[in-house]
């Protein structure tokens, strides 16, 4: 385990968004991710690919501090989970498989809750603006249980629009483009590009074609103890 004393003294803005050192995470008593090393600079996107069950979600949730690692360490913006959990949680946004919309609230309050949980305190029209980015403003009063799956997914992604003031956060997104129609996908792409241009970074898992150009691609299934980052293509 990397000693907390050997903390990253790099300046806040210059610290790499994400450093992963020899990370091993096991699931069900079984090493699923072994000896992963990776680094993500500002403005970069890392793509996680691989068949189901190869550890994409495990890695994303591990980076969010939800799954303990066997050994190795990682740091987001120079802050490692072991040293300062609360501060670390302010360095990331997690969009998991589950939409995190509280079922018995309406769309507006569900979004307000998840934003509040992440430490933001958005104003009412800031939330309406976020809903508007994903064309959900009309459904603000609609109960979550009355929304379609696609609408619920758009509501979950609308949360991203509230983080424009905090570009340092690492976006950890689990198959965000799944079951999204075209304009929602382009809205997400637009938000992501805006986030990257203002210095943010993202780790995204997914299958098939995604409308983003990845700086690094990790194929988790072929990953056995060494990093295999995709060819470095500059962002067009």
């Amino acid at each position: 385990m990397m000693g907390a004393t050997q903390s990253y003294e790099l300046g806040f803005m210059t610290a790499p968004r994400l450093i992963i050192r020899d990370l091993t995470i096991s699931r069900g008593g079984y090493p699923l991710i072994t000896g992963l090393n990776a680094q993500l600079e500002q403005g970069q996107v890392m793509l996680l690919r691989g068949p189901n069950g190869c550890g994409k979600t495990t890695l994303l949730r591990g980076l969010a501090g939800l799954i303990p690692q066997d050994h190795g360490d990682f740091a987001i913006n120079g802050i490692s989970a072991a040293s300062d959990h609360a501060n670390m949680m302010r360095q990331l946004v997690l969009i998991g498989h589950r939409n995190a919309n509280a079922e018995s609230l309406d769309a507006y309050h569900a979004l307000a809750m998840t934003a509040g949980l992440a430490g933001l305190a958005p104003s009412a029209d800031h939330i309406m603006m976020a809903l508007e980015t994903f064309a959900m403003a009309g459904l603000a009063k609609r109960q979550i249980s009355h929304l379609s799956a696609g609408q619920q997914r758009r509501l979950a992604l609308a949360r991203l629009a509230l983080f424009t003031a905090e570009p340092h956060r690492l976006w950890l997104m689990d198959e965000p483009f799944n079951a999204l129609d075209d304009d929602a996908a382009s809205t997400l792409n637009h938000l992501l590009n805006h986030h990257l241009e203002s210095g943010g970074a993202a780790v995204i898992s997914g299958h098939g074609a995604m409308p983003i150009t990845a700086n690094q691609t990790l194929h988790l299934d072929q990953l056995k103890g060494q990093t295999q980052s995709g060819k470095k293509e500059d962002r067009s």
């Binding site: 969010a64 501060n87 498989h97 589950r98 939409n99 995190a100 919309n101 998840t114 949980l117 430490g119």
Partner: peptide, 18 residues
């Protein structure tokens, strides 16, 4: 049970508040 299924618990665990 409902919040676990919805994923709200996951967001609570990822919240800066203890």
């Amino acid at each position: 049970t409902r919040e676990a299924r919805d994923g709200v618990l996951e967001q609570m665990l990822v919240s800066p508040a203890p």
